[in-house]
């Protein structure tokens, strides 16, 4: 078994693969990330052949680890890096029970955090990636973590997965080509490329931020924006969380505090530039 230990925010991973190549790619993608504290990884994510012979004969990649899901389909060997990313995600989604998880991206400026919830295709990853190249600090892509003791946002800056048109936009704005993973084509999510957060995001990954604004982006529509009622915000944040119920009453308290105190809105945008402009305008109004 080929292994790689790495810490991303509060999660100390031991990542395993039956094949050496995917681990080598992962090491390059996560260059500069710290090793687990005290050398002890407490979360295991791994990929391997679904059947023994699948290791050599038309190899397939199964997504495994401490926690597994019944319905997952083995993936093509060429998409091993995506499979590793999903194995890493699954351990957080099914295993994390210290911080409240919100399915969103987030960036920080001046100690204040902008949270962008949304399912895949809403553009939340692209916006976060590009804002992070304009002076914002990347806090999270996919999983925002709320500390149940303080209510603050704990960064979980894993590599950002950019899809289809977002790849070219990021390539145009990110100077250092070494921050990009390989170009994966014909994956279940279409064209895919991973982008490593910049050095600042990695260096300051243990610096929490204060949630200050929640924006729901919708990519591909004419510019428009609208308020989000507190009850809908409560529903969207909790239904989008894989551990809200498991965390019990403290999670209820924090989501209630968030919906009562933090402004929220949704906005549509036809392209990334207009999206960023709308976000900056909202942030100015909210004092970020």
């Amino acid at each position: 078994m080929h292994g790689f230990d790495v810490r991303v925010g509060p999660i100390s991973y031991r990542i395993g693969s039956a094949w050496a190549a995917p681990i080598a790619v992962l090491r390059r993608l996560y260059a500069g990330y710290p090793a687990p504290a005290d050398g002890i990884a407490t979360v295991t994510a791994r990929i391997g052949p679904p059947r023994p012979w699948r290791r050599w004969i038309r190899p397939q990649v199964a997504i495994e680890g401490d926690h597994n899901l019944p319905d997952t389909v083995p993936m093509a060997f060429g998409h091993a890096l995506l499979a590793i990313e999903m194995a890493m995600n699954m351990q957080v989604a099914l295993g994390e029970c210290r911080h409240l998880l919100i399915h969103a991206s987030a960036v920080e400026r001046g100690g204040k955090a902008l949270i962008m919830p949304g399912d895949s295709g809403s553009g939340k990853s692209t916006l976060a990636a590009l804002l992070a190249e304009r002076g914002w600090r990347l806090l999270a892509d996919e999983f925002v973590m709320i500390d149940l003791a303080t209510g603050r946002l704990i960064p979980f800056p894993r590599a950002i997965s950019l899809k289809n048109s977002a790849i070219a936009e990021a390539e145009a704005r990110v100077a250092d080509p070494a921050r990009f993973g390989p170009h994966l084509s014909a994956t279940p999510k279409g064209e895919l490329r991973h982008l490593r957060p910049n050095a600042e995001a990695i260096a300051r990954m243990d610096e929490p931020a204060e949630p200050a604004l929640i924006l729901f982006p919708s990519y591909g529509f004419e510019p428009a924006s609208d308020g989000v009622s507190r009850s809908e915000l409560f529903m969207r944040l909790t239904e989008g969380s894989t551990n809200y119920i498991a965390l019990g009453e403290p999670a209820f308290d924090h989501v209630l505090r968030i919906v009562e105190t933090i402004p929220a809105a949704r906005f549509a945008y036809p392209d990334t530039d207009s999206g960023i402009a709308i976000v900056e305008q909202f942030c100015a109004e909210a004092g970020l």
């Binding site: 009622s229 009850s231 409560f234 529903m235 119920i245 019990g248 009453e249 209820f252 209630l256």
Partner: peptide, 22 residues
């Protein structure tokens, strides 16, 4: 239970089941 009025509804956290209802 923990109850809280929100948007004209009652938000409830029910301790024995750990469930949250509107």
């Amino acid at each position: 239970c923990r109850t809280h009025p929100i948007d004209g509804m009652t938000l409830v956290f029910h301790r024995p089941s750990g469930a949250t209802h509107f």
